[in-house]
């Protein structure tokens, strides 16, 4: 009796409740999110990703609080601000940091399971390949979308409360549009991550491939941005004629596609980060006009579908014995 355990340690059959099949993907997504949140790097990059909003908040609060208007009435500096362009700019700037988060939490999502044979655990349970893919997709999509959404909504709330007289909410669809564009990085990175990750057995290799896929076109499109500005500031008629083509090439990268779709959604080409922006040598900021909305949206969706499809083809019930 002295050595008896306190609890009954013999085997007992489980006869408790069981959830339906519709919740399986959520269990998978939930674990992916929990594992992502355990990483310190995730929090660091998540906080950093909204840095442009913090700068804007600080600048606008400083202008509003400490710089008196030279003329009676509205402050001319704030009146000159195109507010939706501030969201567009912040969205563009956050792309690189959101990519780092995707690299951190997404590229190993299936590759690590491949390495650890964890697919056997998933697929031998009553969850389908679709549950697994959706769960993994959501496990990347939800954190990135939340990281993108929080500073955006905070800035929207601050602007809506402080600068309504400066036309902050001139478009009543601005909030739904902002929510929609905040979903873009999550959707694209989730699709790319699960597609690339499913091709490898190691998260690091998947991450390296994903980085290559991101940065090679990224350098190219940034170069196209420079070319566009130079051509715009030049009087050469041939250069002017090729502006549209160069402008479209600017959107030919992972972040370019997202920027393109976001511009199409917000219906803006963008503007200087602050009014009067330009270089001291006289080169004026020239916003690249938004691409064809339908075309860029179709390309965006096609990329998401193709990479999700790769994951669908690659994930299969592996050897059992």
């Amino acid at each position: 009796m002295k050595n008896s355990p306190i609890a009954d340690l013999s085997y007992r059959h489980y006869d408790g409740p069981l959830n339906g099949g519709a919740t399986r993907w959520w269990s998978i997504a939930k674990l992916s999110i929990q594992l992502a949140m355990k990483k310190k790097g995730f929090w660091v990059w998540a906080v950093l990703s909204g840095y442009w909003y913090y700068i804007l908040l600080a600048v606008f609060w400083f202008v509003e609080s400490f710089i008196p208007s030279p003329v009676p009435g509205k402050h001319p500096l704030l009146s000159a601000i195109i507010w939706k362009d501030q969201f567009s700019n912040a969205f563009n700037i956050s792309q690189l940091l959101l990519f780092v988060i995707a690299l951190l939490i997404g590229t190993g999502t299936i590759a690590n399971d491949n390495r650890a044979n964890a697919l056997l655990v998933y697929l031998s349970k009553p969850c389908t390949k679709l549950d697994y893919i959706i769960g993994k997709w959501m496990g990347v999509f939800i954190p990135i979308t939340i990281v993108s959404l929080i500073p955006t909504l905070f800035f929207f709330a601050y602007g809506g409360l402080s600068f309504q007289e400066y036309g902050f909410i001139s478009d009543w669809w601005l909030l739904p549009k902002l929510v929609l564009i905040c979903c873009l990085p999550g959707a694209l990175h989730a699709s790319l991550c699960i597609g690339i990750s499913s091709l490898f057995n190691q998260g690091r290799i998947a991450g390296a491939v994903y980085s290559g896929l991101f940065f090679l076109p990224w350098f190219f499109t940034k170069a196209m941005q420079v070319v566009y500005v130079v051509l715009s500031n030049n009087d050469n008629p041939k250069g002017k004629a090729s502006l549209k083509f160069v402008g479209n090439l600017y959107y030919a990268s992972m972040d370019g596609i997202q920027i393109g779709v976001s511009k199409a959604i917000l219906n803006t080409g963008g503007s200087a980060l602050f009014p009067g922006g330009g270089s001291p040598r006289g080169t004026q900021f020239v916003p690249i006009p938004p691409p064809n909305g339908t075309a860029i949206t179709v390309i965006f969706i096609a990329i998401c579908v193709i990479f999700s499809g790769i994951a669908w083809l690659r994930v299969r019930a592996v050897e059992v014995v």
């Binding site: 069981l18 399986r24 390495r115 650890a116 964890a118 056997l120 655990v121 009553p126």
Partner: peptide, 27 residues
């Protein structure tokens, strides 16, 4: 199914792993 190969889920404790398997089974 108890597979032959090692098939743990990286980053989980034993209780977390087994509980997760239960959630996958609908618990």
């Amino acid at each position: 199914l108890m597979p032959e190969q090692e098939c743990h889920i990286p980053g989980l404790t034993a209780v977390g792993y087994v509980a997760y398997a239960g959630e996958l089974a609908g618990m």
